[in-house]
C-alpha cells in the first residue's frame, strides 16, 4: 500500500507492506537509525518517537497507521546543529552510557518538558517508566532531564 508520512517535517511517499512496523519504516526505509529496537513485547521503549506530537513505541504501530500523520524522531531534536537542551542535559549529566536507550529517552523527555516545564524528579521518573535503560540506573537520566528543564531557553 502507499503511505504518506511526514517525518521530521519532510513528506515521504512510499510503497510498503501493511504489516511494516513504524520502527522499521524509519530505520530500514528512511535510514533514520537513531531510533532503536530492543524488544518484542512493547516493554523497552528504545523505539519511542512522536506520532502526531505524542510519544509512541514505534515498534507497536504499523506504518499504515502513521499514514497521513507526522512523526518526529531524535534526528529532529537539534536545530541547525544547535543541540536541544535535552540533548545538552544528557551530555552534561552523563545521562547515557551505551546510548542505545538515549534517543527514546530524549524524545519522552522533550515531550514531558513541553507539557510540564518544571517537573519534579518523581515526575521525570514516572514519565520514563515505560522505557528501560540497562546502563545508567536512571539516576543520571533524571538529572539530565532536570538539567534541561533548568536550562530551557525557548525550547522547541
Amino acid at each position: 500500500m502507499q503511505v504518506n508520512v511526514t517525518v521530521n517535517g519532510t513528506v515521504f511517499t512510499r510503497e510498503v507492506e501493511p504489516r511494516l512496523l513504524l520502527i522499521h519504516f524509519l530505520r530500514d526505509e528512511l535510514g533514520l537509525t537513531g531510533s532503536h529496537w530492543g524488544c518484542d513485547t512493547s516493554n523497552c521503549g528504545a523505539c519511542v518517537v512522536w506520532l502526531d506530537d505524542v510519544p509512541v513505541k514505534s515498534c507497536t504501530v504499523l506504518t499504515a497507521m502513521a499514514d497521513g500523520r507526522r512523526v518526529r524522531t531524535v534526528e529532529d531534536l537539534d536545530r541547525g546543529g544547535q543541540l536541544d537542551p535535552v540533548q545538552q542535559g544528557f551530555a552534561e549529566c552523563h545521562g547515557l552510557q551505551c546510548g542505545f536507550c538515549t534517543p527514546g529517552m530524549m524524545m519522552t523527555a522533550r515531550w514531558l518538558l513541553d507539557h510540564n516545564p518544571d517537573p519534579s524528579a518523581e515526575q521525570v521518573r514516572e514519565a520514563i517508566s515505560g522505557q528501560v535503560c540497562r546502563c545508567t540506573g536512571y539516576e543520571n537520566i533524571v538529572r539530565s532531564v532536570l538539567w534541561a528543564a533548568k536550562h530551557e531557553g525557548g525550547g522547541t
Binding site: 512493547s42 521503549g45 519511542v48 506520532l51 505524542v54 510519544p55 509512541v56 513505541k57 507497536t60 504501530v61 519522552t108 514516572e126 514519565a127 517508566s129 515505560g130 522505557q131
Partner: peptide, 9 residues
C-alpha cells in the same frame, strides 16, 4: 495500567 507511553495510544 501499563506505562505512560502505552497509555498514550
Amino acid at each position: 495500567i501499563a506505562d505512560p507511553i502505552v497509555r498514550n495510544w
